[in-house]
């Protein structure tokens, strides 16, 4: 009698376990494509080493412009002495786009009042690291910016 009871409860346990694992597998089968679907596919990014940032006569001294570089903003600055500098315009704090402040001759992030000097180093504010600096050179009428090698 006792033996029969154990075998019955064993069978019940086995059926319950089979149903439960079957259900979990079934839900997994339904969820897998959904989870894959919601993560967007990686788009082929055009990765360039050099881009045209401006024309030679475009920027007057003590001014700057932003331009796209590999799908991200970059900034080209013409210093008061006429020299060009280029940096990534993505603030290293929370990815805001920085700007050049002609009044205090620094790179400034409006989001959290961060300041970078004209070498891209942090002067004040929360950014943890300097802005990535790029090489600038002229080619005929164009000012080209490229990643540092």
């Amino acid at each position: 009698m006792v033996k029969e009871k154990t075998s019955k409860s064993g069978r019940r346990h086995f059926i319950g376990w089979s149903l439960f694992t079957g259900l979990v597998a079934f839900l997994g089968m339904l969820l897998y494509p959904v989870l894959r679907f919601i993560m967007p596919p990686k788009l082929a990014e055009s990765s360039q080493n050099t881009v045209k940032a401006a024309k030679v006569d475009e920027l007057s001294p003590n001014s700057a412009k932003t331009f796209p570089f590999n799908n991200k903003p970059a900034i080209l600055i013409r210093l008061p002495n006429g020299e060009y500098r280029a940096f990534s315009a993505v603030c290293t704090h929370l990815q805001c786009t920085v700007q050049y402040r002609e009044d205090f001759k620094m790179i400034w992030c409006a989001c959290h009042n961060a300041k970078f000097d004209l070498n891209g180093n942090v002067s004040s504010g929360p950014p943890p690291s300097p802005l990535e600096a790029f090489d600038v050179f002229t080619s005929g009428e164009d000012i080209l910016v490229s990643k540092k090698v």
Partner: peptide
């Protein structure tokens, strides 16, 4: 064509 399982959904 590009999203995984997009054709299925």
């Amino acid at each position: 064509t590009s999203v995984r399982f997009g054709w299925l959904i």
